[in-house]
Amino acid sequence: MTRNEIKDLILEIIKDIDEDAEFDGLDPDKPLRDQLDLDSMDFLDIVMELRKRHGLLLPEDEYPELATLSSCVNYLEPKLADK
């Protein structure tokens, strides 16, 4: 997957969690939690969806890598390179 496709994947998963989420003006370098109505349970949903959709088993101590949209893309790019 390309970096853009990974970004779209994350936004698509967030949209599944919260249909009302608005991405206009979303700063990719600021924490998603500060900009969207997301809590720790929602981040576990993101982890689960990555597992279900792409078989990614992310170690728990690496969950903080999903904090911002940019960090998601950076972290997932090598893992999804051949997906």
Partner: peptide
């Protein structure tokens, strides 16, 4: 309540 809360 919001759709998100119903889903949760």
């Amino acid at each position: 309540r919001k759709k998100k809360e119903n889903k949760r």
